[in-house]
Design a protein around this nucleic acid. Structure first.
Length: 695
DNA sequence: TTTTGAAGTCTCTCC
DNA sequence: GACTTCAAAA
């Protein structure tokens, strides 16, 4: 399949001074959006309608028009999206576009806070906490106020963190959130407030900033200080926002503040693809845009360039069932092509085998592995598939659901670095003190209190006198910290060296704690490799919090850009991407949609949109599979594990070719019609592929 | 006060 | 099957 069919034309570079022929390279609606002048612009862009292309051309148009590149701010949802867009803009307008400021809301907030935070009473050397750290700190607040040992039904630290975060991001009152989502805890409403107050105080005292603070402080700088609003808002002449349907109220406030002077704001989104409500996103944000920004122009993109008609027929039908919809059905000129498959497998193993076999078949036919993706609702659902791919030596890369930085041993090592960076980092102190033999909760708290009363001087921990049984560990830690503090040689591998030093103490602890330490030690090796790529400790720690590596390959340090390898991804992480062939596995009711999202209509609707996102990633081949027997005892529950996802209703199924995989070596059977020869699978033949067969 | 072992709780999505 | 929490032992 040549790219020319997928896109109307390639992004074309134009010599300086030359005018770009938008009419030739974009369709009418795209061109209208790209060449829009000043003032608010809302682009409703359905899946595959050239949203990125339009945005990239708009950036090019602005630069052509004389807007300095570094006065354009491009906010995207993920780091990957930002990189892709800036790379394409560069191809279009040349290196000049590299000066466009781009990134996620959080990364941009971080950059601005480092620069302007001190003018707003924020210490310059604050530490960023990730969600796990916030949860740990919430636990400290919870315990401090004596709630840890209250009745069993007191909300857990995760619940507290969720309510807090939701409150900040949506602006809903704590009371409303608790009533709506955690009715059983209404009696503790006052306690929620008390804990949040303590949590907030701790963050300030310990110089810590959580994800929500990044956004909140950005908004507050704009709203509470006319001077800062002028300085920060004055940095940019144009603000462009991707995936606007996934922004929340707090982010809308930020945008309002950033554009208060010029109203040059462009947002792109698709309400049918809003899938981040758990993060406070509200797709009504996109509908309210014209209200928020008076005089907004709206452009709707409905011409799909990605998928074939049979695929679009399925996805259009799927989304037509949504309770509320604001975009129309998409149309395509890509007639013909393979009808999407709906494949029923006996069990997980058969599903896995089918997917792998079919992947090899596609690959034999000339589809590069990189053009094939397997999608699923949650990260763990690909476990069996990953094993099989490894056995068959098929290279793959997994997106989303990566827990590398959340792994306890990685966080442990980072905790050492963080207390060097920020001696007041209570979360890290507590974590690493508990690692030491002879130190438990009580001693750790005593040590922290002692340091706090000594104003967190660097020698404070050395002067703390631990109980006798912890004396050895205390001494070892003190000498390690001294080594780390004194080692200020400005070498390239400085952070990596620090990690090596930490590991002299930590590796033994790790071996002591885990039966199988090898994989964890290997993780730490990887961490050292990553660290070597950063100039200094502060940059390294901030980058890890804000831009966690997308795939495990990123972690190995080497870029695998060139390598042809299959993509496994959660449905969430697949957004914004497209592949020639897309498999969706585990299309089982209770799995996708996830059972825990089915209590509410909103939850169900969001799951439907999520499946829509997943299926609209496909250009030419779409295969949905579901095993009949999950035969695991993963969860005893009242929903049935062996039914096809409710979203694959009759109307959707009728537009697919339905196949039930036979048992053993017998060929697959089309359940709708007699099996035509073309659909019979030859599993044996596939085993002879170049990846080598299993026995 | 720390450690240890046993019972109990859920499983996601992401900056 | 991994992680948390609780209660009893050291």
């Amino acid at each position: 399949m040549s790219e020319a069919i997928i896109y109307p034309a390639r992004d074309r570079t134009v010599e300086p001074g030359q005018t770009r022929d938008f009419a030739a390279e974009l369709n009418a609606e795209q061109a209208k959006a790209a060449t829009h002048g000043d003032g608010p612009l809302l682009i409703i862009a359905g899946a595959g309608t050239g949203k990125t292309r339009t945005l990239v051309y708009r950036v090019a148009h602005l630069i052509d028009r004389g807007v300095p590149a570094d006065r354009i701010l491009l906010l995207t949802f993920t780091r990957r999206a930002a990189q892709e867009m800036l790379a394409r803009a560069e191809r279009l307008v040349g290196g000049n576009s590299r000066r466009v400021h781009g990134g996620t809301f959080h990364a941009t907030a971080h950059r601005l806070l480092r620069k302007y935070g001190p003018s707003a009473g924020l210490s310059k050397d604050f530490t960023i906490m990730d969600q796990g750290d916030s949860t740990d700190l919430m636990q400290l607040s919870r315990a401090q106020l004596g709630y840890a040992s209250m009745g069993k039904r007191f909300p857990k630290k995760e619940t507290l963190q969720y309510v807090y975060s939701r409150h900040i991001n949506t602006g809903f009152s704590v009371e409303d959130i608790v009533r709506d989502d955690y009715g059983q805890f209404v009696e503790y409403l006052e306690d929620f407030t008390k804990i949040f107050a303590d949590y907030t105080k701790r963050k300030q005292e310990r110089n810590l900033v959580d994800y929500d603070d990044l956004l909140l402080f950005w908004a507050l700088m704009l709203e509470a200080s006319p001077e800062l609003r002028d300085r920060i808002g004055g940095l940019y002449d144009h603000v462009l926002v991707d995936e606007y349907q996934d922004t929340n109220t707090l982010q809308a406030r930020i945008l309002k503040g950033m554009c208060v002077r010029h109203s040059n704001i462009t947002v792109v989104g698709d309400d049918a693809q809003s899938i981040y409500s758990f993060r406070g996103a509200n797709f009504r944000n996109i509908l309210d845009f014209p209200k928020q920004f008076a005089g907004a122009t709206t452009v709707t993109l409905e011409q799909n360039y990605r998928s074939t008609k049979p695929i679009l027929d399925v996805t259009n039908t799927l989304i037509s069932r949504a309770a509320e919809r604001f975009t129309k059905n998409l149309r395509t000129e890509r007639e013909g092509g393979e009808q999407p498959w709906l494949v029923c497998a006996r069990d997980e193993q058969q599903q896995t085998r089918f997917v792998v076999d079919r992947i090899l078949e596609l690959h034999e036919e000339g589809t590069p592995l990189r053009e094939i993706a397997v999608l699923f609702r949650a990260g763990y659902m690909s476990a069996d598939l990953e094993i099989e791919l490894t056995n068959r030596k098929i290279p793959f890369e997994k997106w989303g659901g990566l827990k590398f930085l959340e792994a306890a041993h990685v966080k442990d090592v980072l905790a050492f670095l963080r207390i060097i960076e920020n001696p007041r980092d209570e979360v890290s102190w507590y974590r690493l003190l508990l690692l030491l033999p002879g130190i438990g909760d009580a001693t750790a708290r005593a040590a922290i209190d002692s340091m706090a009363s000594a104003a967190w001087q660097s020698g404070a921990f050395g002067r703390f006198s631990p109980p006798p049984r912890a004396r050895a560990a205390h001494g070892a830690l003190v000498s390690l910290l001294e080594t780390l503090r004194s080692g200020q040689t400005p070498e390239d591998a400085q952070v990596a060296l620090e990690i090596a030093n930490v590991r002299r103490l930590y590796d033994d602890i790790l071996r002591e704690r885990y039966d199988k330490p090898e994989p964890r030690l290997a993780d730490l090796d990887q961490l050292q490799v990553i660290a070597a790529g950063y100039p200094d400790r502060a940059t390294f720690l901030s980058a890890l919090a804000l831009e966690p590596p997308q795939a495990s390959q990123d972690l190995a340090g080497g870029s695998k850009e060139d390598e042809d390898c299959l993509v496994l991804s959660t449905a969430h992480s697949s957004k914004g991407k497209e592949w020639d062939a897309v498999f969706l596995i585990w299309a089982v009711d209770g799995w996708f949609p996830s059972a825990r999202c089915l209590n509410s209509d909103e939850g169900t609707e969001e799951e439907r949109r999520l499946m829509y996102v997943a299926l609209t990633r496909a250009r030419n081949h779409l295969l949905v599979t579901y095993p009949l027997n999950a035969y695991s005892t993963r969860r005893s529950s009242d929903y049935s594990l062996d039914q096809l996802s409710r979203f694959m209703d009759k109307g959707v199924r009728d537009k697919m070719q339905r196949v039930a995989l036979g048992s053993g070596d017998s060929p697959a059977v089309n359940v709708d019609t007699a099996p035509p020869a073309a659909q019979v699978l030859d599993l044996r033949a596939l085993l002879r592929s170049k990846f080598g067969a299993t026995s």
